[in-house]
């Protein structure tokens, strides 16, 4: 993949996504186990887990890993891939323009297999997909809406908790995060979406404006 930095911000954004990928790969190396399924869990719709999930999927697929992005959102309009799909296979999986990247929406799952979100069905789906895909990225509904985020988080190998750093609902975010840990989800980290550039540079220890 080549980065096309239309602005310093986009450059920084994509580098931040790469940092998340590196974080996953590092964890994989440390644990000596594959991390196939990763859930992105957010508290509210405004947290923007959809974009993060999209770009993580792009990045993995671009690295050559066969990847599928699953959207467990009731309305998957937030996913950029939705409007750019070609055709769905019998199992509801949609091929994207990228050879290594497929997409599966909750709508298609329901249409093809009368899928209901619960711990067993999600685990079963993930086990089935693991046979075909190396990376399974799960974008979930906000925790304030339903339990799909909790279910995906405990069913996946690990989860990232996405929150909008400009949110003014800190106390609720604290609560959902605590709940996520309490149910035993393997939380890899917290993604502060919409973070200030200075904070991004500071945490990733980037100097100057040229990166990558």
């Amino acid at each position: 993949m080549r980065l096309n930095p239309v602005s310093d911000n986009s450059d920084l954004f994509l580098l931040s996504i790469r940092k998340i990928i590196n974080d996953i790969l590092l964890k994989e190396m440390k644990s000596m186990e594959d991390i196939n399924t990763i859930a992105l869990v957010s508290s509210f719709d405004e947290d923007g887990s959809g974009d993060i999930a999209d770009y993580i999927s792009y990045e993995f697929s671009d690295n050559g890993d066969k990847t599928i992005l699953i959207s467990l959102k009731e309305e998957s309009s937030g996913c950029n891939l939705k409007n750019k799909v070609r055709e769905a296979s019998a199992d509801g999986i949609i091929k994207t323009g990228n050879l290594n990247l497929d997409y599966l929406s909750l709508d298609n799952l329901k249409r093809t297999s009368e899928f209901v979100i619960n711990k067993e069905s999600v685990k079963s789906l993930l086990n089935k997909l693991k046979e075909k895909y190396k990376r399974i990225i799960i974008d979930t509904s906000p925790l304030e809406e339903n339990l799909s985020g909790f279910i995906a988080a405990i069913s996946a190998d690990g989860a990232y908790f996405v929150c909008n750093s400009k949110s003014n609902r800190g106390s609720m975010i604290h609560k959902y995060y605590s709940d996520l840990k309490d149910i035993g989800a393997n939380v890899f980290g917290v993604i502060f979406n919409n973070a200030g550039k200075r904070i991004v540079r500071k945490i990733y220890k980037m100097d100057g404006r040229k990166h990558g």
């Binding site: 993949m1 080549r2 980065l3 096309n4 239309v6 602005s7 911000n9 986009s10 920084l12 954004f13 994509l14 931040s16 996504i17 940092k19 998340i20 974080d23 923007g48 974009d51 993060i52 770009y55 792009y58 697929s61 671009d62 323009g97 990228n98 990247l101 990232y160 750093s165 980290g189 917290v190 993604i191 502060f192 979406n193 919409n194 973070a195 200030g196 550039k197 904070i199 991004v200 945490i203 990733y204």
Partner: peptide
């Protein structure tokens, strides 16, 4: 893991 606003991010090759 902070991520800045993504509105202008483009990926070439996808």
């Amino acid at each position: 893991l902070p991520v800045p606003a993504s509105k202008k991010a483009k990926v070439e090759g996808v």
